[in-house]
């Protein structure tokens, strides 16, 4: 099995620390804007990510405090991309067990196969149960990059 793939870089523009969001939509929008600012996606990808949650429910809250926002590969995806938003005040997504969300990780994959590989890499990071808390408490972008093991 070759599920190992390097995560895309995380430039400063792709990280928003201590963001203020009124609700889950705004939290995902902020993450979408960060993806777009990093050059990975067009602005429409944020809408796609919100539609995924509207269509399928809050299952993107994959672990306590962590939302993995994403949409299918498509024209809005320019290249693989990753964005991190930490929330000043945790926001409920409507998940029965894992609310409220402190960290939104937005992911864009250029293809479905690539997207799956990136998700597998992310799983490896968050299997360390402290990772969400450490990212939520991070004071600098470098700290976030260190926890994820990614380049700027």
């Amino acid at each position: 099995m070759d599920d190992t793939a390097t995560l895309p870089p995380l430039p400063d523009e792709a990280v928003v620390l201590r963001a203020r969001a009124r609700d889950w939509r705004e939290a995902v929008e902020i993450a979408g804007r960060a993806l777009t600012a990093s050059g990975a996606t067009d602005a429409g990808y944020a809408v796609d990510m919100i539609r995924m949650i509207e269509a399928h429910g809050p299952y993107v809250v994959v672990a306590p405090g962590l939302a993995l926002a994403h949409a299918r590969p498509g024209p809005a995806v320019r290249r693989d991309g990753l964005a991190i938003v930490t929330l000043a005040d945790p926001v409920p997504f409507g998940h029965p067990h894992n609310d409220p969300v402190r960290v939104v990780l937005a992911l864009a994959g250029a293809s479905s196969a690539r997207h799956l590989q990136l998700v597998a890499e992310i799983a490896n990071i968050f299997n360390d149960s402290d990772a969400v808390e450490r990212i939520a408490d991070a004071a600098t972008v470098d700290e976030v990059r260190g926890i994820l093991g990614v380049a700027p």
Binding site: M1, D3, M52, A55, H56, Y59, V60, V62, L68, H70, A71, R72, P73, L107, G109, S112, H115, L116, V119, A120, I122, A123, N124, N127
Partner: peptide, 18 residues
């Protein structure tokens, strides 16, 4: 199984394999 077949189902896949 998940909504798009490429997100949370991918996490489940890698952790189930483990």
């Amino acid at each position: 199984l998940c909504g798009a077949g490429i997100g949370t189902s991918g996490i489940l896949k890698v952790n189930a394999e483990r």
